[in-house]
Each structure stands twice: as C-alpha cells, then as structure tokens.
C-alpha cells in the first residue's frame, strides 16, 4: 500500500469486523521528534492475549475466505522499516487500541496520503458507527466527531448524499488549514 491513510482504513476495517460502534483515530505529527504516530482505538470485541500474539503472525486470521491475515503484519512492516513500531493493547469485551509509530524523515516512510478519503469511506458506508478523528501537526490541531454532526442531523442520515458532500468539504478545509502555514 502506498499511503499510510490506506493502512488506517484497513485497520479500521478490523475494528468494524470486531463489531465496534465507535472508532477513534488520531494522526499526530511531531516534526521536532521526527515522529508520525497513528492511533486507532475501537470498542469492539477485543482480543485475548493469545489472539493478540497471533494477530502479529501473518498466518493467523479469523477470516474464512483466505488463510492468512495481512493487515497488521503489513502495517508492522511499514512502521518497522522506518525504525518505528506497532503496539496493540486489547481487552476482550472492551476493545482494541493499535498504535503505529513512524520515523517521518526515513527514506522508507510512506506519505500519510489522503486521510479524508479514508474517513469518507467509513462515514459513507457505516454512518451508524461514531468516528472521532484528531489530527495534530506540531502545535496545530483539529478534531472532528461525527456524533456532533448526527446531533445536528437528527433523523437525516449522515450518509445522505448532500450531507456527505458537505462533510467531505468540511474535512478537506480543516486539513488544508492545518497543512498550509
């Protein structure tokens, strides 16, 4: 995969598969410490210690259509090739938090890419799931919480086409503002 934002989508798919109804995503760039940290926390089914150990192994998967799970091992490779790492904290019945740390300046560090497109896939296809997104670039930051949109929308669904168009421009404006200084 060519962008870190695609890994975010893939890891969030694990959260959805685990039955999460809330996913918290944060992307924190710290240029002084030369780190880019992605955190994805869900309130899905969680994993036991054994499942967690197995999730690090490409030959472990609970999927039935293919024999290997690729998502987490691929992300781990992408992080470790920059000198970073992946950590998973998980409690059965409570949820899972995955943290991936990248060394920004490393030649093998993939670009973050289009996080807004990743968020839009989640918002469009799983409007029932609450998405919280926090983006930090050094001292600048913003937060988007789809719960807030839903409060305003009431009975109008979050994936109403006109609503989605608005949400996407809202996110893109914030992203541009954060980057452009």
């Amino acid at each position: 995969m060519r962008e870190l934002s695609l890994y975010i989508l893939d890891i969030a798919q694990n959260s959805l598969a685990a039955g999460a109804c809330e996913i918290k995503i944060s992307v924190v760039e710290d240029t002084n410490n030369d780190r880019l940290t992605i955190k994805i926390a869900d309130n899905g089914s969680g994993m036991t210690q054994t499942q967690k150990r197995q999730a690090a192994d490409p030959f472990y998967t609970t999927r039935t259509t293919r024999k290997v799970g690729l998502g987490i091992p691929l992300l781990r490779m992408a992080a470790e090739q920059t000198g970073g790492r992946v950590e998973i904290i998980s409690k059965p019945g409570k949820g899972t938090t995955l943290t991936a740390e990248f060394v920004r300046s490393h030649i093998d560090c993939l670009p973050l890419g289009d996080v807004v497109s990743t968020l839009m896939v989640l918002i469009r296809t799983r409007p029932d799931v609450d998405i919280y997104y926090k983006r930090v670039l050094d001292s600048r930051s913003y937060v988007v919480d789809t719960r807030k949109f839903k409060e305003i929308l009431g009975d109008v669904p979050l994936n109403n086409p006109d609503v989605s168009v608005w949400v996407e421009s809202y996110l893109r404006e914030h992203e541009i503002q954060l980057a452009g200084h």
Partner: peptide, 26 residues
C-alpha cells in the same frame, strides 16, 4: 470489497467515486 487486498488494489477511490456519482446524479 474492502478487505486488505481490495484496499491495496484501489477500492477506496472506487467506493468514493460511486458515492460521488450517485450524489451528483441525485
């Protein structure tokens, strides 16, 4: 399809393109 292989092959822009086209054509 949005499994790892789907995402790696380009499913994300495809899904968003469908949603945008559907919105555009109302």
């Amino acid at each position: 399809g949005m499994a790892t292989c789907g995402i790696a092959a380009g499913a994300r822009p495809v899904l968003n393109a469908f949603a945008e086209e559907v919105a555009k054509r109302r």
